[in-house]
Design a protein around this nucleic acid. Sequence first.
DNA 1: TCCTTCATGTAACCGGTTACATGATTGT
DNA 2: ACAATCATGTAACCGGTTACATGAAGGA
Lengths: 174, 174
Amino acid sequence: MSLRHALLGLLVERTGSGYDLMKLFDTSLASVWPATQSQVYGELNRLDAGGLIEVVAEGARGRKDYGITADGKAELHRWLVENEEHKPQRSEPLLQVFFLGVLAKDEAAARMRRWAELSEAQHQQLVGLREGVDWGEDMLSTGGALALEYGLRLRAMEQEWARWAAERIEQGRS
Amino acid sequence: MSLRHALLGLLVERTGSGYDLMKLFDTSLASVWPATQSQVYGELNRLDAGGLIEVVAEGARGRKDYGITADGKAELHRWLVENEEHKPQRSEPLLQVFFLGVLAKDEAAARMRRWAELSEAQHQQLVGLREGVDWGEDMLSTGGALALEYGLRLRAMEQEWARWAAERIEQGRS
DNA sequence: TCCTTCATGTAACCGGTTACATGATTGT
DNA sequence: ACAATCATGTAACCGGTTACATGAAGGA
């Protein structure tokens, strides 16, 4: 149940409505923890019912501004320090690589070159995000910058690996 | 629906029962596409019903050996060449990094050092797997080696990044 | 005989996805 | 007036997880 904690984390810095939070999920958090609108609203109601967040203001169009409670902050902190296992993450593209031997040499190599291109594009996108966002003084910017750096290094690694793999496939070992 | 394709991919090389396939999921595929027993048996029945695989032999203890059909091979090939988007993958640890600003400096740094340790352990585990498995001549070994190399590079990158992040946190920027 | 391994299956639950539905407010 | 944006909600579905259940065959 990470969505709960993502919401709690976002509400530490500033209060906000479901609508506001959704915008954050579509921008800053899009590459780390995508979420849908129905999910966010549902979870907010559950968090409210559980006393981890509360409605601090009601505005026009049925808008409800939420703020985190003391219980919510405690739960967020617990989650951040306690949960420290890394469970294996499913990757469909990597699963496809596993079965690349089924394809002809040129098909397989093309697949790897395509991966390299995608990684390059994603890398560029992250560079753009780094320039675009105003890295203010708030707490999110601390972790945000670290997460961004992870993404940059990951995509760089993928590019190198994919090109290496493509060449390896083209030379002999198919 | 990648589990279907993982099963198809495994059945290209050799026939096997659900039990046999489960062992592969717990070893070779564990870090790429973990699957549970109930999932595997259920999917095998669905693939059989759909004509993508078929029972080629029945043994003791109700054992059913499956083999891939022509339709199954076609479907596997289609999946391998057609599907080439990389959708963002959720990462709980990375989400936690995003909110690291909530923690005290030393707590946050400890978290990153812990990540570095975990990555190192996983790297070692992969090295062990590389030595342990007999990299025969079959098709799986082709892609398997590439996937393994990905894992090695990923964990190496994570180690460097996590140590860099820990130092950055300890110096000033909290 | 008894434990382990082999072998398959069902059912409840949970998080995430897609699609549908509603309506108020603001700006042109 | 009309369209775009703001704002929240419901329901069906789907893949994955956990737990339970059953029983045959092989080895000590």
